[in-house]
């Protein structure tokens, strides 16, 4: 059996998702043994090219990012967007300062942007989250090895939260995005009393207006970076 060649790349990001993959150390060693998976974490394209599967972490914030991304796409059979930055443009990488705010604060020659990779290349699959859930990554990885299409969770963070019998943060007046956010994170933030800020993106048929209405009725204010509409439609350029 030919080696399955896997490349893991990062564009502009905090590399937190890579750390999550490394956290899988025990299982990864197992997989490497059984399937002779060649796994290279590198900044440039290495000798394993072409890749069967490329995992790309980070968003596109420069022309260099864009060029590298296109090179990776050209050299890979399957391309997986890894984490919130790659999937949605890293709203949370810059969550304390909206990109527009940064541009206002630092008026200079360079205009800042942070784009999801799907704006530039075709993406076969997305693993959302900031950072990714390591078990979900592994489930997707196994699916790809079996040539299964890794089905995205289509349940909400709320539904996972109630399975942990957590008390509801919205009920406590906190702007929690759990009801409209795609689950799969096992509601880790609300479990530790942190509101969900939607890092996994919208669930299928998310009722954004409904949630905003609920917040309004309860007098809950919401930070602009959390507004789901800001994540916008992804368009390829």
């Amino acid at each position: 059996m030919d080696k399955i060649r896997v490349g893991i790349f990062n564009l502009s990001s905090c590399e937190g998702c890579l750390v999550q993959i490394l956290n899988l150390e025990d299982i990864l060693l197992n997989i490497l043994k059984t399937f002779e998976v060649e796994c290279r974490v590198l900044g440039t394209i290495g000798k394993s090219e072409p890749y069967d599967i490329a995992f790309v972490e980070g968003s596109v914030m420069s022309i260099e990012d864009e060029m590298e991304l296109k090179k990776i796409r050209g050299a890979s059979r399957i391309l997986v967007a890894l984490g919130e930055c790659a999937c949605h443009g890293g709203n949370f990488l810059v969550k304390d300062f909206d990109v527009d705010e940064i541009n206002e604060m630092f008026p200079g020659s360079q205009k800042w942007y942070s784009h999801p990779i799907e704006r530039y290349v075709r993406v076969d699959y997305r693993i959302p989250g900031c950072p990714i859930d390591k078990e979900e990554f592994f489930t997707v990885f196994k699916s790809l090895l079996l040539e299964k299409f890794p089905e995205q969770a289509s349940f909400t963070v709320c539904s996972e939260c109630i399975l942990k019998e957590n008390s509801c943060l919205i009920e406590k007046g906190v702007a929690c995005m759990g009801p409209i956010t795609r689950g799969g994170c096992k509601a880790i933030c609300p479990t530790f009393n942190r509101e969900c800020y939607g890092c996994r993106g919208l669930n299928d048929d998310a009722n954004i207006d409904g949630l905003l209405h609920t917040f309004k009725e309860k007098g809950i204010s919401i930070q602009p970076y959390m507004l789901p509409s800001k994540k916008g439609e992804v368009k390829r350029s």
Binding site: S159, I162, A206, G210, L211
Partner: peptide
């Protein structure tokens, strides 16, 4: 909001899905 909490907390809701989970 289609969050599903009502189903999961209902004493009579019992719908489920079935999947295969391969080992490593």
């Amino acid at each position: 909001l289609a969050c599903g909490k009502c189903n999961f907390t209902c004493p009579t809701c019992r719908c489920f899905t079935i999947t295969d989970e391969p080992n490593p």
